[in-house]
Structure formats: structure tokens, C-alpha cells
Design a protein around this nucleic acid. Structure first.
Length: 643
RNA sequence: GCUUCCAUAGCUCAGCCGGUAGAGCACUUCCAUGGUAAGGAAGGGGUCAGCGGUUCAAGUCCGCUUGGAAGCUCCA
């Protein structure tokens, strides 16, 4: 009998091994360093422990911590070590465990502990985890039948584990992973021993509902991050620090862009500096839209409840709406702009020749969000949408979608955002006929194919009234935000009985495209603050340049310059306080003002300006006209500052 | 909304085991006329988020309210 078996390595090389050889032994045969570094493996694409024996011809892959998959094995083991540490510290039987999966950059474990764990306990737990790693406890696994496993966890008083096992098919064997005093059911794989866990850190503590359902009990969740090297861990901690420095809430306060107040939770107050930026964003969008054939409109904030009942918002959305009763009539603050635009469409008879009609509005909407969901400008209860509704004939859908995509591309390009696109198709409880859905999904796909825009399909993630294309922008720290959206809608025209007269003088139903580019101007502003770390491009900067006279004798020249630049349309200030240049310069830098103009005797004599750009050390003297031209050009081009 | 944590001067924060409030920055005034990231001095500024309780005594301990932060789909 042949007790040899062939294995195929990732590079295509084949090898003959004894039947039943473990992956660890295979690694040893390949190289000592691989044997040392391999933490898990893959047999025919399936993740397995390094101790897994190979008994038939297979594709073999050995994983080290250099691969994402290997790293995730380590993170998973780290989660088990966390559970073990908690159990050691709080006593067996005092902690019930939920799930402990791997997440981006790390892991978490949900548990119910007799005594509640607080932030300062994390240090203690982390120390115990270090001990467990030091002890380098071997991790072994064995299989139990479902019944055996359930009995096992019942005995261990782990009700959540028992519940989890219920959802596993009865014929599947359950793997128990054991590391001395701790054991857990787990799909695996895991590291060979606890000592393989390298750099980790417990980051935060939070509540989490059992199985994510708010009707269930709340467990305590401990989050951790873990990396293959201390260096990677430090880099990630540095990234978190950087993100914190850029936090728009912090910068918003520092740069006096906006504020919040108890009197209106979740509703931003824009301070003069912030309002300038908002206005610029709005104006830029307005100009781009007008060029693209949109007409700007404005609809009331408050409309009667009946309208919202007709539009279907009452049914789907009234829990998120604000109401008010006046003159014995119920009114609602609009959570969306669509119904208003529908009424406008119906204002007169429309011909097929009129379409497409593109109605745009910077519409202020109110939506009641959970208090716990509020987050600076990123999640608010009132915000301004750069909303538009495009009324089209069916045959115009593709062309209009394409135009809208180009507009979005143009706008995002200005901020230096790259983006990815997702096409979401018909969801479960959707309205409308199959044919219409198929036609429209196809239309959207056609457009994306034609303009060669790569996209990902999200099956069943569309709105209940039609499919959509979402745009996700990537900011300077690599984080992704969903902003623009293009949604096809057959329901709204139906509900409002919208029609146009076709060439045969018959009434026809138009299709509506919902379109937003920034999405919420408020949220987009928040994203921009973090993207630029508060150092806005010149066209957005609330103060574009500041004049710093070296001493008070230069104040008249400062005043003259200020007038000149103001007249040229530049937002400029003169800092004429009786302070030293160094102080004024420091303050101007901290306000991230794009240009600093220093003027003294030399400049006044030659009628020049000594210009220093934000973030640069050197400065240069230029004539007034030259400086004015540079700034005007930079503003007109909406150039991005590279700081 | 729920869980945990937090709220002290305009801002950032200190304040131990409960004994009657502190720093830096900012602000005001004065001195200094200063050339590329903080010149010096003096001064004003607090219902310690709000309400209630325990106590001889509460910023501190306990409740409630308000506001804020993190998290609450990533399935052994």
C-alpha cells in the first residue's frame, strides 16, 4: 500500500510526503524559518491549524503573520487569550462568554461578567494576557458531537455558547480549543501556542447587545488591536492619534467653525468662519449644477401631515420626523425634499419635450436620530442636502444617469477625493413590477459599463422604490464615506400621479432620479475638515491671508494692502495688535491661514509683500500685483494645498 | 433608545481619604516698537451642568434630569 501522498504548494511545486504528515512537519521540510514562522495553513483553500495532518493529495499553503489571514488567526487567538485572562481574574463561572471574532485591525470579545469591568481594569486584563503569552501555553483542539458540546457548555454554565451551538447544523462536529485552564468552542484555526501572539493592546470597552439585537441582553464588549510586530502596532496607534488630531469636532472648536448647544441637541450652529466654508461649498455646487442644466428651487420646511401620508413617508419614516400643530392642523418638518419637488412638477402640464426637468434644492431637512447616534457634523438632526430630482422619460434614464455621474466626478475631483461605486439592486420588500426593476437595474449597469467605471454590486441593497448607485469617497487617512447617491424611483411618480404628454398626445408616467452629490453639506463639511486637517484649500479658507506689520509704523501700509486685496475679492485681515511678530505669526499658523504677508520698512519702501505660505518655512518678497495674481489664480482653480 | 464612561473659568485641564476653588492659554490694563511659531508685569473672571438626598460639612459620596463620548449586523 502506498503511504505517500502528493501535495501542491502555492508556487506550483509538487512534493511527496508521508500520509498523515502535519503541516508543521511539511513546513520543516521546506525551510527552518518557515517552520518557525508558520502559524496556520490552508488545505485546499480551507483554513486549518498547523497541526492538521494531510492524508490525501491537496493544495497546501502555509500562513505566517505576514499574511492578512495569518494575522487574523493570531487576532482570533488573542480574543481567546482575552477571555482566558478575564476568566482567570474574575473566576470561572462568573463570566459568560458570547462571541469573540476578528475585526479589522484586531478583535473583540463579548461577555457577561458578574462584576462590571471598567476602563481601568483593561490594564489589569492586558497584564494577565501578557502572562498567558509568556507562559506560552500550547493550544490543542478536539472534536465533539453537537450534543456532547452542548452538554459540555451547559455544565460549564455558558448559556450563550449553548445558544450559539443551536444554530449549527446537527451533523457538523464541534471543535473545542483548549489552552490549559481555558476552553472555547471555535471554528478555528488557532495559533500553535499562546506565545505566538506578538503585539496587542486592549483599546476600549463598550456595551453590545447579544447578537446585535436591542431586545436582547446587553453584554460587555472588550476591543483590542493586534499586529505581527510592535512596529505595526505603534503605526496603528499613531494612525489613531492622527485621526484624533483631525477630529472635526475638535478642529471645529479650535478654528471656530461651528458649535453645538444644549438648546438644540444634534443641530449645528455655524460660526462666521464655518459659514464662509458652507457658503463656498454651496456656491460651487450651485454653479456646477446650473452649468449642467439644473434649475434651483426652494420648498417650505413645514408642510402638512397629509402630504407625508400621501408620499408614504408617514408609513416608512414618521418615527424620525418632527411634528407641530398649528391652527388645528398637523404639520411636519420635512425629512426629505422629494414631495415638495413632486408638487412643483405637478404645477403645470408637462410635455415630453420638457423632459428631463432637473430641480435642485439646497434643502434643509430635519430627521430625529437616536441621541446615541449623533456624532458632530457627521450625524446630526438637521442638515442641508444638495438635493435634486430629475424627471425623465424612460428612454432618458441612461443619458441622465451618465450626466449625473460626470457631475459627481467633477465635484469630487476638486477636493482630491478618489471614490468607489456600488450598484444596489432590488431588496426583499420592494414595491413595483419585476419588469421595471429589471429594466432599471440593467440601465444603471449599462451606464457604468459604458463609461467604464468599476463598480461592486450590492444585491438586495437598493431602496424599496428603486435601484441605486452609491459613491464612497476615500479621505486623506484612507477612511471611506458614503456621500453621493443616484436613485431611480418609480413609486413617487405613481403616488403623486405625475404625468407628461407624449408625442401621441397620451399621458405618460415619468421616472424620477433622486440625486445628491455632497449628500449632506454638513456631513461633507465634517469630512472635509478631517480630510484637510483644517488646512483648507485657499478657495475655502475662511481667512485667505493675514497681513502682519512688523511694527505699528507699518499700519497705514497694512491698511492700504487690506483695502487693495479686499477689493480684489480676497478674504484678508490685518493683525495690527501691538504684539511681536513672532506671536502673530504663531497664531496665524495655528489658525492655518493659507498666506501670511509680513510687511516692514523694506516692503513698504519697495511696495512689496513678504509672502509665507502655510506649512512652509521660507518666504519671498513679491510685488503687490504678483501676489494678488497668485492668490486669484489659486482661488479660481480651486487648487488643493499640499501641506 | 440601550450599556459604560464623562461634565470644574471663554478654552485645555489639575483638585488626594468629604473641610468652603487652582494652573496654563485667552481676556482687560500698563510697560516693551518688536523681522518669520509664545517679550514682561498687574488685574478681572466660577451657582464646580441642573435638581434632590446623605452628612456638622459635598466639586468630591448616592439618586434623578440635561448634554457629551465610545459602542450596539462583522454570526462557535
Amino acid at each position: 500500500m502506498n503511504n505517500k501522498v502528493k501535495i501542491i504548494l502555492p508556487d506550483g511545486k509538487e512534493k511527496c510526503i508521508e500520509k498523515g504528515t502535519s503541516l508543521r512537519k511539511i513546513a520543516e521540510q521546506i525551510s527552518m524559518s518557515l517552520a518557525k514562522n508558520a502559524v496556520a495553513g490552508k488545505v485546499n483553500g480551507k483554513l486549518v491549524d498547523i497541526s492538521c495532518a494531510v492524508s490525501e493529495e491537496s493544495h497546501i499553503e502555509l500562513l505566517t503573520l505576514d499574511s492578512e489571514e495569518g494575522l487574523n488567526v493570531m487576532r482570533h487567538t488573542a480574543a481567546h487569550i482575552l477571555a482566558q485572562a478575564v476568566e482567570r481574574l474574575y473566576g470561572k463561572g462568573n463570566v459568560q462568554f458570547g462571541i469573540g471574532p476578528v475585526i479589522e485591525h484586531g478583535f473583540y470579545y463579548d461577555m457577561k461578567c458578574q462584576v462590571s469591568i471598567n476602563q481601568s481594569d483593561l490594564v489589569k486584563i492586558e497584564k494577565e494576557m501578557q502572562n498567558i503569552i509568556q507562559e506560552n501555553i500550547p493550544i490543542r483542539s478536539y472534536e465533539l458531537s453537537l450534543e456532547e458540546a452542548q452538554a459540555y457548555f451547559k455544565k460549564k454554565k455558558q448559556p450563550y455558547k449553548v445558544e450559539l451551538l443551536e444554530s449549527i447544523p446537527a451533523n457538523e462536529a464541534i471543535t473545542i480549543y483548549e489552552q490549559r485552564d481555558f476552553s472555547d468552542s471555535c471554528r478555528g484555526p488557532h495559533l500553535p501556542s499562546t506565545g505566538y501572539v506578538k503585539a496587542f493592546h486592549l483599546t476600549k470597552l463598550a456595551g453590545a447587545y447579544w447578537r446585535g439585537d436591542s431586545n436582547n441582553e446587553m453584554l460587555q464588549r472588550i476591543y483590542g488591536i493586534a499586529f505581527a510586530r510592535k512596529k505595526d502596532l505603534d503605526a496603528h496607534l499613531h494612525f489613531l492619534e492622527e485621526a484624533e488630531k483631525r477630529d472635526h469636532r475638535k478642529l471645529g472648536k479650535q478654528l471656530e467653525l461651528f458649535m453645538f448647544s444644549e438648546e438644540a441637541p444634534g443641530m449645528p450652529f455655524y460660526l462666521p468662519n464655518g459659514q464662509i466654508i458652507r457658503q463656498e461649498l454651496e456656491q460651487f455646487s450651485r454653479e456646477a449644477q446650473l452649468k449642467a442644466g439644473y434649475q434651483e428651487v426652494r420648498t417650505p420646511l413645514l408642510m402638512n401631515q397629509q402630504l407625508w401620508e400621501e408620499s408614504g413617508h408617514w408609513d416608512h419614516y414618521h418615527e424620525n420626523m418632527y411634528f407641530s400643530e398649528v391652527d388645528h392642523t398637523n404639520f411636519a418638518l420635512k425629512p426629505m425634499n422629494c414631495p415638495g419637488h413632486m408638487l412643483m412638477y405637478k404645477q403645470k402640464l408637462r410635455s415630453y419635450r420638457d423632459l428631463p426637468i432637473r430641480l435642485a434644492e439646497f434643502g434643509q431637512v430635519h430627521r430625529h436620530e437616536y441621541s446615541g447616534a449623533l456624532n458632530g457634523l457627521l450625524r446630526v438632526r438637521t442638515f442641508c442636502q444638495d438635493d435634486a430630482h430629475i424627471f425623465v422619460r424612460e428612454d432618458q434614464i441612461e443619458a441622465e444617469m451618465e450626466k449625473a455621474i460626470h457631475l459627481i466626478d467633477e465635484v469630487y475631483g476638486v477636493f482630491g477625493f478618489s471614490y468607489t461605486v456600488e450598484l444596489s439592486t432590488r431588496p426583499e420588500n420592494s414595491m413595483g413590477e419585476d419588469a421595471a426593476w429589471q429594466m432599471s437595474e440593467q440601465a444603471l449597469a449599462n451606464v457604468l459599463e459604458r463609461i467604464d467605471l468599476p463598480y461592486q454590486v450590492n444585491e438586495g441593497d437598493g431602496a424599496f422604490y428603486g435601484p441605486k448607485i452609491d459613491f464612497h469617497i476615500k479621505d486623506a487617512l484612507g477612511r471611506s464615506h458614503q456621500c453621493a447617491t443616484l436613485q431611480l424611483d418609480f413609486q413617487m411618480p405613481e403616488k403623486f400621479d405625475l404625468t407628461y404628454v407624449n408625442a401621441d398626445n397620451e399621458k405618460q408616467r415619468p421616472v424620477v432620479i433622486h440625486r445628491a452629490i455632497y449628500g449632506s453639506i454638513d456631513r461633507f463639511f465634517g469630512i472635509l475638515i478631517e480630510h484637510f486637517a483644517g488646512a483648507f484649500p485657499l478657495w475655502l479658507a475662511p481667512v485667505q491671508a493675514v497681513i502682519l506689520p512688523v511694527s505699528s509704523v507699518h499700519q497705514p501700509y497694512a491698511a492700504q494692502l487690506k483695502d487693495t486685496f479686499k477689493a480684489a475679492g480676497i478674504r484678508i485681515e490685518a493683525d495690527c495688535r501691538e504684539e511681536k511678530l513672532g506671536l502673530k505669526l504663531r497664531e496665524a499658523q495655528m489658525k492655518k491661514i493659507p498666506y501670511i504677508f509680513v510687511i516692514g520698512n523694506e516692503e513698504e519702501e519697495k511696495q512689496t509683500i513678504n509672502v509665507r505660505k502655510y506649512g512652509e518655512k521660507q518666504s519671498q518678497s513679491l510685488s503687490i500685483m504678483e501676489v494678488q495674481k497668485i492668490l486669484q489664480k489659486e482661488i479660481a482653480e480651486k487648487a488643493i494645498r499640499h501641506v
